[in-house]
Structure formats: structure tokens, C-alpha cells
Amino acid sequence: MASKNKKMWYALFTVPLLLIFITVVIIPFLIGIYYAFFEWDGIAANPKVFVGIENFTSLLQDERFLESAWITVLFTVLSVIAINIVGLAFALLVTSKLRTSNLARTMLFMPYLIGGLILGYIWQFVFLDVFSLFGEVTGLDQVFFNWLIDPQFAMYGLVFVFTWQMAGYVMIIYIAGLQGIPNEVVEASKIDGASPWQRFFRVTLPLLMPALTISLFLTLSSAFKIYDVNLSLTGGGPANSTEMFAMNIYNEIFGSGNYGLGQAKAIVFFFLVAAITLTQVYITKKREVEM
């Protein structure tokens, strides 16, 4: 009797959420794997044709897809580096015991709260108008022009805006890490005559490894999965030069109506995201130092 009662409570507490979760995540995931082996245009009346692994082999010959995979990797590497350097620099600045550091922290974090879609639109104008203005005034029109109309610079523009969005977020993680470093350790290295650079690279940075693991994990996966900023800032253009992975999948499915092929790409996308993030966590975890 008691055990039956216990089971009833267990079900009452967990089943509502599990039901929603299974409906929204698990079942679509399984249906998705199934769809990846069919050719279908998304119209319910039209037949789904089983094609085996043909979708997976043909995506390897899809040049637009491979191009998009390559620029996503490039974008991810550049943004992860930029975001973590800027975020860590911000964290070091605002923890340096200045009276204005709280205000600065509040302001630097702000962009993260504004959604990616809206940020992209804001920056569209900044690139269009302010960058050109800068170029005219300073004469550096090789550097300051509307980046979004040049295939190569449009990608840098995306890195730039994404860094602007994420730096404050990563800063918060590094602040938590910095505050966790005992003062005595830093003081001791000072007494031992370590220069500020040595102190940073030999003492602070190794002790920041746990924060670095987390922030690499978060920036890596969010950069690799970028969609909103991509959509509003460049829309994938000019001439598909900034069409990232997520957007390529969206366009394949809902733009070209290749539901099967698009879903095969989406499955590959899942395995890549999982592989990259798990590998990264494994590598940086190994390098964390024990206190």
C-alpha cells in the first residue's frame, strides 16, 4: 500500500513535465531521424519516397552546404577567440576595484539582454551609416565602409556583432572565476617578484580554467548554432557568403522544400554540435588545475 502510494506521488510530480517534454523534444527527434531517409517536399498529399542514405551522400556533394559548413567553422573560431578575449579583458577591468566598475559592469552586460534579431537590425544601420561616416571623416575608407556589402567583411561584421552581444555575458562568468581566486595566491606571487604579465599567465589564467571551460562551452555551441543575428544582420548575404549552418538547414527545408535532405543536414548538424562541445569539455576539463 505504502509503495503504491509512493508511486502515485512520483507519477503526479513527474508525468506532466515528462509528457510535454516527450511530445516536444523526444518524439520530434525520432521522427526527424525517420524523415532523413526519405525524399519529400513537405506537402502532406505528396508521397514520401524512401531513399536510404541517399540524402546523406548527396549533402556531401552539396557545394552550398559545404561552403556554409566551412564559414560556420571559421565564424565559430573567430568569434570564440574574440568573445573570450574581450570578455576576459572586461572582467579584469571591472574587478580592478574602481568605483565605476559596477556601473561599467551593468552597461557592458546590457547587449546580451537584447535579442539577437534586434541587435542585428541595430548594427545594420551602424554599418550602413556610421561606418561610412567614419570612413569619410578619417579617410580610412579601406577599413570603415559598409562591411555588410562585401562577402568577406560581412563575415567579420557577424563576428563583430556577435562579440558585442556575448562579451558581457562571458564577462559575468569570468568575474565569478576571478572572485574565486584566493587573494593570498596573487599576493604571494607579487612578493616573489612576478611581473603583472607573469602573474596573469602563470597564476590567474591557470586558476581560471574552470571558468574558461564553461565559457568556451557556451560560446562554442552558441556560435556554431547562430541564427538570429545571421538572419537580421546579413540574411546570409551578400550572395550566400554568410549563410551559416543553421540558416542553410532552414533554407533547405522551408525555402527549397527539400524536407528529407534538409532533415538529413539537421541530423548531421546535431552530431557535429554534440561532438564539438563534448570534445571541448573533455579537453579543457583535463587542463583544469586542482586547488
Binding site: 520530434p28 539537421a266 554534440a274
Partner: peptide
């Protein structure tokens, strides 16, 4: 098992689920 399933699915990107989810939702 339930907890591990929750954790594992955190790695699934939205793009992997969006099309089948929409199919499933409109069939419901």
C-alpha cells in the same frame, strides 16, 4: 534514466527538431 535523458537532449540544436516538431504539432 529520466535525468540523463534531460541532460543529453540539451545538446540537440533547435534546427534538428523544428521541421518534425511542426509536422507533429499540426498532426496533433
Amino acid at each position: 534514466i529520466i535525468f540523463m535523458t534531460f541532460i543529453a537532449t540539451m545538446l540537440i540544436p533547435f534546427q534538428t527538431l523544428m521541421m518534425p516538431l511542426m509536422q507533429f504539432m499540426s498532426s496533433i
